[in-house]
């Protein structure tokens, strides 16, 4: 399979506001294969949107080379634009006076899709995303989440070969996010030659959905692999959730030999503590220490590292 997206040593500098130029992307290289669902995960200001805008032909890289579908984003935009689309999270795009259906139709016209065909696709997608009851409502009367669904539909109506989704489930409820995630996965996997790059703040979304994930911070790619391999990076240590009754000097437990990470949460008259330990045997020491302090063990479970743990490990802080 060939690469649908090729990014080579891309740096993007924005003309800093008196504080010197800011590097939104710093020597970024990555490639996304045709048929791949690729995720970009990173804290605010990491450079995710900047990369997407470059791939969407809306922004030029300051240096480096970017190819989409084999074409250069600087010199061959006319070859790229008919075959891509982008959806950004947030309440943007469209005209409030037009209905949902009319807005979607309007954007389809910029891609030259015959009206009849466009309307068939639109109706199909509106049904799929449970937005068909709003198809004739003016856009200014619908909710933020409904507008976001409309935006997602706008991206797919043109049947692009490469689609960029910048936080597509932002502001959506659990059901709607689930429906969209299911659709995204199917869209890439059940058709040939479709590629998707998405950014998200939801670790679960990246974990469930993506074939590969790049973790990006301060314009640099810190890691790029399948979610499973990324989590394997943390396999050397183990994570346990220990539930006990309240006992004195809980904080001192974090200083026991072999404990790498320690997080306490009080739940009513119980305490749940997460221990990240060097090796599993350390947890035995932890338990005897709890008992010697008069604490009573009520439950113990080993947990698998999540993508969030990987993220914390690499970036040094959590997302939220």
């Amino acid at each position: 399979m060939s690469d649908a997206i090729e990014v080579k040593s891309v740096t993007r500098v924005f003309g800093g506001n008196g504080k010197g130029p800011a590097k939104a992307l710093d020597d970024v290289s990555l490639s996304v294969k045709e048929g791949e669902l690729f995720g970009l995960l990173g804290p605010n200001g990491a450079g995710k949107t900047t990369l997407i805008k470059i791939l969407a032909t809306l922004l030029l890289p300051s240096s480096g080379q970017v190819k989409v579908l084999g074409y250069d984003v600087e010199k061959e935009v006319d070859k790229i634009r008919p075959r891509i689309n982008m959806v950004s999270g947030g309440d943007v795009g469209g005209y409030g006076l037009l209905t949902v259906r009319e807005n979607l139709w309007m954007f389809s016209q910029f891609y030259g899709i015959p009206t009849k065909e466009a309307n068939e696709r639109i109706d199909h997608l509106l049904k799929l995303f449970a937005l068909d009851d709003k198809s004739n409502a003016k856009v200014r009367t619908i909710s933020t989440g409904q507008k976001q669904k409309m935006n997602v539909i706008r991206g797919f109506v043109t049947e692009p070969d490469v689609i960029y989704l910048d936080e597509p489930t932002l502001g959506l409820d659990v059901n709607a996010s689930f429906a969209i995630r299911t659709y995204l996965r199917k869209w890439v996997k059940e058709q040939k030659g479709k590629t998707m790059l998405l950014t998200t703040h939801y670790m679960v979304e990246a974990d469930e959905l993506c074939d590969r994930v790049a973790i990006i911070d301060k314009g640099k790619i810190l890691a790029c692999d399948t979610p499973i391999n990324l989590k394997r990076m943390l396999r050397r240590s183990s994570t346990f959730d220990v539930e006990t009754t309240i006992f004195p000097e809980i904080e001192s437990m974090g200083r026991l030999a072999g404990v790498e990470g320690f997080q306490v949460k009080q739940l009513g008259d119980k305490v749940v503590t997460r221990y990240v330990v060097e090796q599993e045997s350390v947890i035995a020491d932890v338990i005897s220490a709890i008992q010697s302090k008069g604490g009573k063990l009520t439950s113990l479970s080993k947990t698998e590292p999540t993508l969030e743990d990987v993220f914390i490990h690499l970036v040094g802080r959590g997302l939220e």
């Binding site: 943007v92 469209g94 910029f110 030259g112």
Partner: peptide
């Protein structure tokens, strides 16, 4: 400001048509 411009710019038609 409303976010339409970037959608227009990204689309394949001539911007003169817009």
């Amino acid at each position: 400001e409303t976010g339409n411009l970037e959608l227009y710019m990204m689309a394949p038609m001539s911007k003169m048509s817009i």
